[in-house]
Design a protein around this nucleic acid. Structure first.
Length: 1062
RNA sequence: GGGCGUUUAACUCAGUUGGCUAGAGUGUCUCCCUUACAAGGAGAAAGUCGGGGGUUCGAGUCCCUCAACGCCCA
C-alpha cells in the first residue's frame, strides 16, 4: 500500500464551509452535549455551566460569540477529561426589550398593542420568540457550541414558569416580597415603570429658576433653586445644609408654600449643595443653598423625606399631568387652576405665577443631564406608585450573597451582615479576575429593595389576586391582624384562602380602605402543600377568588426575577419529578462549576442568582467560580453598537474565516484586562477587497465609517457603510450596496487552522498504515522524537494549567507555539529525511498528531474533528508513555495523558542549543543569498561537533548543512563566512561563488557591536557591589557565566574580522 | 461624584511573586512558487515600556503624582 494515498484525498487548503456542516451534523447525531446525571449513590466528577440566556430580541453579536466560545472551551475540555458535563442552553424572554421591538414592528404594520389586546399580543410575541430562538440556537451550533440541545430552555417555558411561581410564593410567604409605594422611573407615555438601566441620561439645555418662598412669620423669604418648578405643588420642606451659616437662624422655622399655602418646615440635611459662585462644580455655582424638597417627585428628595419624616404629596397623574386625585388632599383654590395641565404647561404657568407675584428672583440657563425613557424618549418622571418589591436588603438575601464571597478576595463584610459561618457555600464563590469581587461586594453595600413589577404584558404575570374593601365589611380575623398596624403594612392572615393553600395578606390603604392580596402557588406546589382545605386545584382556587371579586395583578415580573432563578429553574427545581428529564440534574449539576458573563450584569444577574440559589437551596451556591469576560470594542476603543454601525456579526466572520478562526482568535484575545480592541475593516462588495474605511466624527464625538465609501481600486464605485444604514442615510441598492465588516485579526485563526490542516496532510502521507509497531519503546526514539515528546509533556501541563485558571490567551498561545513553531517548523522539518521507512518515528509522528488534535479540539473543534477521522484511521500501535485511547468522535475522545517518563529537560536544553546554532547558520545563509537547496559545509570545533552528533542529523537538516568538518588544524577556506556560537568561531563554506567582503565585514561588525554592548552591561552589573552582595547567588553566577560566554563570542567575532583584513 | 481598567514596535497585544540580552501576531524590507501549507518558508529592520518623582544593588513590573483614553455605577 502506498503511503501517499491519504494525502491526495485531502484538499490542499482547509475549507471551513466544506467541513463545518458535516461535522456539526455528526455532533448533533451523536448528541455529544447530552448530559447524564449521576444516578442515586453514584459518584464521579461533574462539570456544569448554564448559558447566560441571550435575549430573544435579536441575533447574537460578537460579544455572545466570545462568551459562548469561552464556555464551550471549558465544556469540551472537561468532557474530554471524563467529567459528566452539562452545558444548559436557553434564551431569555427579555420582557421590556422584547415588548418594545415587537411593538415597533406592530406600529410599522399599522397596529398597536392596545388594539389587539393582551392575549393576541402575547401570542404575537411568542411567534417572535420562536423565530429568534431558532436563529440564536442556530448561531450557537454554527459556532460549535456543544450544549445539551435537548434541554434547551426558555425563561417563560413551563418548567421555568413553575420555578418562578414557586419562588414568588415562597418569598411572599416568608415576607420577602411586599407591595409598597415607591418612587419609580415612570414613563408617562407608555405608562410603565422602568428599571434604572432602562433610563438613558441625556444632556438637556434647560434653566435654573430661583423661587422665593416666604417665611411663615413674615420675616422675609428663602430662595430655592430648581430645574423643575412644576413640582413645587408637592413640596413638603425646604432643606439647607447644616454647615450653611444661615442655617442656625432658620432652625425650627417654617415656610409658607406659595400657591398651595402649605406650611412646610425648614430642615437641615447635608445632601444640600452649598452655594459657591467660584466653584468648578456647576451644581455649587448654580445653587442657592436652599433646596425645595418634593419627596413624591424626586428620588433624592424622597431620601431626604425619609430622613426627616416628611409628608409625601403626589401631585401628578399617571400621564404626568397635574392632578389632585393621587394623594394631594390640601389643594388650595389658587392651586386648582393648574390641575389638568401637562407637566410642561404647568411649568410655564407656575413660573408665570411666581413672576406675576414678584416671587421669581432670577432665571439662568442651565445644562444638566436628565433621565429619558429608552422606549418613548421623553423625560422619565420619578413617580410614586404601587409596586412589588423583593426585600433583598434582608440578611437572608443580601447577607447570603455577601457571605458567599471568598474571604481572601473580600475579607471585610459590611456592618449589619452576619459573618461567614460554616453554612455550605459560605466563602466559596471566587471571581476571576479577582478585581470583580470588589464590584460585586461594593454594590451590595448600598443595595435597595428590588422593584420587581413591570407594567408590561410580556413576562410572568404576578400571581397575586387582590380586592379592596371598606373596613366595615372585613372579617374579625383581618381586622384583628391590622390592629395597631400603620398604613401600607401588610399582615398575613389565616382564612379560607390560606386553608386552601394560598397566602392571604391584608393591608390598610387609607383609613377606610383595606386591600386583601392572595398569592396563589403553582399547581405543582399546591398539590404538595399540607392544607386544611385540599378541595381546590390551582384553576379552581383562581376561579373561586375571581368569583369573590379578586382580580389578578396585571403587571409582570422584572425579567431578572426569572433569570435569577436560571440555575434552578432549568434543572427542574422545585419538583424535578414533574419533568422526568430533569431528575437528578440538581443533585449532579447545582452548584454549577462556573458562570461566564459580562461585567455589566454582575449586579443585575450574578447577585440575584446567588441570593436565590442560596436562599432556596439551603445555602448552596449557584456557581463556584465567576469568570468575567472582556468587552470587545472597535478599533477606536468604542463599544460596538448597532447605532454606530461598528459591530461585527459572527455569521459574517464564520463566512469569511470559518468558525475555528473566529473561536481561536477570540480565545487568543481573552486576556484578563477588561477591554480588547477589534479594528474593523470593510469588505468592498464590488471587488471583495478588504480595506480600512474613511472615518468621520459624529456630532456625539464617535469615530465611524463615513456613510458613503469608495472602492479602493476603483473610486468611481461606491458603497454604503453599516453606519450609513444605521443613520438611514440611504437604502442599499445594486449600484451602492452595503459593505460588510470584518477584522484582519481573524486571519490569525484562519491561518492557524490551515496550518494544522496541512501539517496533518503531510503526516498522513508519511505514516505507512499497517507498518507501525505494536508498542514503541522510548529507547528507540531519535533525538527529534525524544524532544517533541518532551515538549508535548511540557505543553500539556501548560495548557491544562491555563484552562483551569481561565488564562485563555495562554492556552491559545501555548497551542500556537507548540503546533506551529515546534511541531511544524522544527519537528516535521527535522524528520523529513528519516521518517520514510522508520516505523518507530512514524508512530511518534502519528501519536504527536493525535495528541495535538486532542488538545486543540476545545478551541478549534471543527478542523480537528474533520481531521480526526483520517488520523485515527492510520494510527496503530502505541508510543510508550502516551495514553491516547481511540474514539470515533474526537469530541468524545479522552484528553491525552503524557507520562512524566517522557519529560526530558536534557533533550529540551540540547534542542535549544541546536536551535541557536541553526539560527546562526541560517542567518549567514540568508546574508550570503544561499539557495534553499544548496548544502553548505560547516567547520566546527569538537564541542560543537558533539552537539551536532547528539542531535542526530537535526542540525544538518534544519540548517542545510551537507558536511561537518573538523576545525582543529584546518585552514580557513577562502570565501568562508564566520559565525560565533557559544564562544567559538565557526566557518561556513561552500556558500556561493564569491564573497562580498564589505557585506561580510558589516555583518561581523554588527555582531561585535551587539556583543560589546552586552559585555559592558554584564560588567556594569558585576562591578556593582550592591548587586554582587544582594542578588541571589545563582543569579550572580549566571551573570558571570553569561559575561564569560559573551566575551568569548566577542573574541571569536573579532578574530573573524581580523581574518578578513585586506 | 464614586469605582475599575488601559497607556510596551507602525497596528493589536503578551510580559505570573521586581532579576537572564523586553516577546508574539499583523504590517514593512530582502530572499525563496524547496514534492504539507504562498493562508507558506528563511532572514532582517523596528521599542527613551505615557510624563515626572520615589523605594531598591536592580523597576515595564512596587509606591506617589500628573496626563490621555475607555468602561461600570450613581
Amino acid at each position: 500500500m502506498s503511503s501517499n494515498e491519504p494525502a491526495t484525498e485531502i484538499p490542499k487548503a482547509y475549507d471551513p464551509h466544506g467541513v463545518e456542516p458535516e461535522v456539526t451534523r455528526r455532533w448533533l447525531e451523536a448528541k455529544i452535549g447530552a448530559a447524564t446525571p449521576l444516578a442515586n449513590g453514584e459518584t464521579g466528577d461533574t462539570y456544569s455551566i448554564v448559558i447566560p440566556p441571550p435575549n430573544i430580541t435579536g441575533a447574537l453579536h460578537l460579544g455572545h460569540a466570545l462568551n459562548n466560545t469561552l464556555q464551550d472551551v471549558l465544556i469540551r475540555y472537561h468532557r474530554m477529561k471524563g467529567d459528566r458535563t452539562l452545558w444548559m442552553p436557553g434564551t431569555d424572554h427579555a420582557g421590556i426589550a422584547t415588548q418594545t421591538v415587537v411593538e415597533k414592528r406592530l406600529l410599522a404594520e399599522g397596529t398597536r398593542r392596545l388594539d389587539m389586546g393582551r392575549e393576541a399580543f402575547v401570542e404575537r410575541t411568542q411567534q417572535w420568540k420562536s423565530d429568534y430562538e431558532a436563529i440564536i440556537t442556530g448561531q450557537l451550533r454554527e459556532l460549535g457550541a456543544s450544549c445539551d440541545w435537548d434541554r434547551t430552555r426558555f425563561t417563560l417555558d413551563e418548567m421555568c414558569a413553575t420555578a418562578v411561581r414557586h419562588a414568588f410564593y415562597h418569598l411572599f410567604k416568608d415576607n420577602l416580597v411586599y407591595r409598597g409605594k415607591r418612587l419609580v422611573n415612570w414613563d408617562p407615555v407608555t405608562q410603565t415603570a422602568l428599571a434604572d438601566d432602562e433610563v438613558e441620561m441625556e444632556n438637556v439645555d434647560g434653566h435654573m429658576w430661583y423661587l422665593r418662598y416666604p417665611l411663615a412669620d413674615g420675616s422675609g423669604h428663602v430662595t430655592v433653586a430648581t430645574t423643575r418648578p412644576e413640582t413645587m405643588l408637592g413640596d413638603t420642606a425646604v432643606a439647607v445644609n447644616p454647615t450653611d451659616p444661615r442655617a442656625a437662624a432658620l432652625r425650627g422655622r417654617h415656610v409658607r408654600l406659595p400657591i398651595v399655602d402649605r406650611l412646610i418646615p425648614i430642615v437641615e440635611d447635608d445632601y444640600v449643595v452649598m452655594a459657591d459662585p467660584d466653584s468648578s462644580d456647576a451644581k455649587a455655582q448654580f445653587a442657592s443653598g436652599f433646596l425645595k424638597v418634593t419627596p413624591a417627585h424626586d428620588p433624592n428628595d424622597w431620601d431626604i423625606g425619609v430622613r426627616h419624616d416628611l409628608a409625601v404629596i403626589n401631585v401628578m397623574a399617571a400621564d404626568a399631568s397635574i392632578s389632585d386625585q393621587h394623594g394631594w388632599e390640601d389643594i388650595s383654590d389658587e392651586a386648582r387652576q393648574f390641575v389638568g395641565m401637562s407637566r410642561e404647561e404647568a411649568r410655564e404657568a407656575i413660573v408665570a405665577w411666581f413672576e406675576a407675584n414678584d416671587l421669581l428672583e432670577e432665571v439662568r440657563d442651565y445644562s444638566h443631564s436628565v433621565g429619558h425613557s429608552y422606549r418613548s424618549h421623553v423625560p422619565i418622571e420619578p413617580w410614586q406608585s404601587d409596586q412589588w418589591f423583593v426585600a433583598v436588603t434582608d440578611d437572608r438575601l443580601r447577607g447570603n450573597a455577601l457571605r458567599a464571597q471568598d474571604a481572601s478576595q473580600v475579607p471585610e463584610l459590611p456592618e449589619g451582615v452576619n459573618a461567614r459561618g460554616d453554612q455550605q457555600g459560605d466563602g466559596e464563590m471566587v471571581f476571576h479576575p479577582e478585581r470583580y469581587a470588589r464590584t460585586y461586594h461594593a454594590w451590595h453595600a448600598n443595595i435597595r429593595d428590588w422593584c420587581i413589577s413591570r407594567q408590561l404584558w410580556w413576562g410572568h404575570q404576578i400571581p397575586v389576586w387582590s380586592r379592596r374593601l371598606h373596613p366595615d365589611i372585613l372579617d374579625a380575623v383581618a381586622l384583628a391582624a391590622l390592629d395597631g398596624v400603620g398604613l401600607d403594612e401588610a399582615r398575613q392572615i389565616e382564612g379560607v384562602w390560606s386553608a386552601a393553600g394560598a397566602v392571604h395578606t391584608v393591608r390598610r390603604i387609607t383609613d377606610d380602605e383595606i386591600e386583601e392580596a392572595v398569592c396563589v402557588p403553582p399547581d405543582a406546589t399546591l398539590r404538595r402543600l399540607d392544607r386544611v382545605d385540599a378541595s381546590f386545584d390551582e384553576p379552581g382556587l383562581v376561579k373561586a377568588l375571581e368569583a369573590a371579586g379578586f382580580e389578578r395583578d396585571p403587571d409582570v415580573l422584572d425579567t431578572w426575577f426569572s433569570s435569577g432563578l436560571w440555575p434552578l429553574s432549568t434543572m427542574g427545581w422545585p419538583y424535578p419529578e414533574d419533568f422526568p428529564d430533569s431528575i437528578g440534574l440538581l443533585e449532579s449539576f447545582n452548584p454549577t462549576s462556573v458562570l461566564i458573563t459580562g461585567r455589566d450584569i454582575i449586579t443585575l444577574w450574578v447577585s440575584r442568582m446567588t441570593m436565590f440559589n442560596r436562599y432556596f437551596m439551603d445555602g448552596q451556591l449557584a456557581f463556584e467560580d465567576v469568570f468575567i469576560n472582556t468587552l470587545i470594542q472597535d478599533g477606536h476603543g468604542q463599544r460596538m453598537s448597532k447605532s454606530l454601525g461598528n459591530g461585527l456579526d459572527p455569521r459574517d466572520v464564520i463566512h469569511t474565516h470559518g468558525a475555528d478562526a473566529l473561536r481561536f482568535t477570540l480565545v487568543q484575545m481573552s486576556t484578563d484586562t477588561q477591554d480588547v480592541r477589534m479594528p474593523v475593516e470593510l469588505i468592498c462588495p464590488h471587488t471583495g477587497e478588504v480595506f480600512a474605511p474613511e472615518w468621520i466624527t459624529t456630532p456625539a464625538g464617535h469615530l465611524v465609517a463615513a456613510p458613503i465609501q469608495h472602492s479602493p481600486s476603483d473610486p468611481s464605485k461606491t458603497m454604503l457603510s453599516p453606519y450609513g444604514v444605521a443613520i438611514g442615510a440611504a437604502e442599499p441598492t445594486d449600484d451602492v450596496p452595503l459593505a460588510r465588516l470584518t477584522s484582519p485579526k481573524f486571519d490569525l485563526g484562519r491561518n492557524f487552522a490551515n496550518k494544522v490542516w496541512n501539517a496533518t496532510r503531510f503526516a498522513l502521507g508519511r505514516v505507512e498504515v499497517g507498518q507501525l509497531p505494536e508498542v514503541v519503546d522510548e529507547t528507540v526514539h531519535l533525538f527529534p522524537d525524544r524532544w517533541i515528546l518532551a515538549r508535548l509533556h511540557e505543553t500539556l501541563a501548560r495548557v491544562e494549567d491555563a484552562i483551569e485558571n481561565y488564562h485563555y490567551n495562554v492556552y491559545a498561545d501555548a497551542l500556537y507555539d507548540f503546533i506551529w513553531r515546534d511541531v511544524c517548523d522544527r519537528y516535521l522539518e527535522a524528520i523529513k529525511p528519516t521518517v520514510d521507512g522508520n516505523a518507530a518515528q512514524q508512530a511518534v509522528l502519528a501519536a504527536v498528531l493525535d495528541a495535538v488534535l486532542r488538545i486543540l479540539h476545545p478551541v478549534a473543534p471543527f478542523v480537528t474533528e474533520a481531521l480526526w477521522t483520517n488520523v485515527s484511521a492510520v494510527r496503530r500501535g502505541e508510543v510508550e508513555g502516551l495514553e491516547l485511547p481511540s474514539s470515533d468522535l474526537l469530541a468524545l475522545a479522552a484528553w491525552p495523558v503524557v507520562n512524566d517518563s517522557l519529560a526530558d529537560p536534557g533533550v529540551v536544553e540540547a534542542f535549544e542549543r541546536v536551535d541557536q546554532l541553526v539560527g546562526s547558520i541560517r542567518a549567514v545563509r540568508s546574508e550570503r543569498n544561499v539557495k534553499p537547496k544548496q548544502q553548505v559545509i560547516l567547520h566546527a570545533p569538537i564541542t560543537v561537533r558533539e552537539l551536532i552528533a547528539t542531535a542526530s542529523g537535526t542540525v544538518e537538516t534544519l540548517a542545510g548543512v551537507g558536511e561537518v568538518l573538523e576545525m582543529e588544524g584546518a585552514e580557513r577556506p577562502a570565501a568562508a563566512s564566520s559565525l560565533t556560537f557559544e564562544g567559538s568561531e565557526l566557518w561556513l563554506s561552500g556558500l556561493a561563488e564569491e564573497i562580498d567582503l564589505d557585506a561580510e565585514r558589516s555583518r561581523l561588525q554588527k555582531i561585535i557591536d551587539a556583543k560589546s554592548k552586552q559585555v559592558s552591561g554584564f560588567e556594569g552589573k558585576l562591578g556593582n557591589p550592591g548587586y554582587v552582595n544582594n542578588a541571589k547567588p545563582e543569579l550572580v553566577e549566571e551573570t558571570r557565566r553569561l559575561l564569560a560566554a559573551t566575551k568569548e563570542d566577542l573574541t571569536a567575532a573579532e578574530t573573524a574580522m581580523a581574518a578578513l583584513a585586506p
